[in-house]
Write a protein that binds this DNA or RNA. Structure first.
Lengths: 149, 149
DNA sequence: CCTTGACGTCAAGTCAACTTGACGTAGTCG
DNA sequence: CGACTACGTCAAGTTGACTTGACGTCAAGG
């Protein structure tokens, strides 16, 4: 049961930044993207709920394995505004990201292991190495590389 | 035995780009970075050795798992100019990248599994979740964008 | 021979995820 | 009270990996 039993502690930008291990400018940036929120004091200074530390931790952890802020944003938006996320919340995010994470893991292990194989087979000759198959290479979605349509 | 038995086929930019699944502009870009090379015709058009396909495949595969062009460049620079890379060549690259690859794999699997754990433990509360440890999070040095696919 | 398209160069644009800078205010401490 | 620091806003810069655009050239086909 989420304890909406308020006793909320508010942190100043510098404090939050320090404790979360990010720069203050990063907080501004995240806020501009709607990843975190703040209230203002009379003097227009930001104040963050302590919970924001948890959000930042989640962002960092996700980011670190290559999930974009965009997707993290979606995930966060799907979490409840009040109280702690529930089993169901995490289950949903887990489901959303699982394929992605698994795919990354597969590619990584494959490349790592490929080195051993290639060492044995004189590989990296286009036809024999699965890793040199261009058709199979279009994972990257970004703007960057786009296959000839 | 590397067959330096010449019978080299030269490809035009369009051909290479198509067969490798990249844009011609990408070839220019890679060439500017020294990842691939070309010779010129009388009319100043580029011509690439067919081997370049293999190099491009290697670049794609490596890139896909998050190795930067910079590191790929180093790896390529360490390969022999003539003939196919040997066992030793791949072994060296493998060694260079292994920690990196393993680390990525670890983080990925950890996050993936963490979801299950967190679902069970109501995690993502800063103290209990290893993934929310900020001290451990300051690794990111870079200036600009830093993604770990 | 002329048109079309692939190619050449170089500068500038793009995108994500931030940081830096310029410049002004708020709050704290000696 | 005055200095100093933390903070506020907004624009612009940075990095990596490319793409796009502008503009001119080479080559093959009709």
């Amino acid at each position: 049961m989420a304890q909406v039993h308020e006793d909320v502690v508010w942190l100043k930008p510098g404090q939050l930044a320090e404790r979360a291990g990010v720069a203050v400018s990063t907080l501004h940036y995240y806020e501009s993207l709607g990843l975190i929120t703040s209230r203002r004091t009379a003097g227009n200074r930001r104040e963050y709920r302590r919970d924001t530390l948890r959000v930042l931790a989640f962002i960092r952890a996700s980011q670190r394995v290559g999930i974009s802020l965009d997707r993290i944003s979606d995930a966060l938006a799907s979490l409840p505004d009040e109280g702690l996320p529930t089993k169901k919340d995490w289950a949903r995010i887990s489901r959303d990201w699982e394929d992605d994470l698994n795919e990354r893991i597969d590619h990584l292990t494959a490349l790592r292991d490929k080195f051993s194989n290639c060492i044995g087979c004189g590989c990296l000759s286009l036809k024999s190495c699965p890793y040199s198959n261009p058709d199979d290479i279009l994972g990257a979605d970004g703007k960057g590389a786009r296959r000839i349509p």
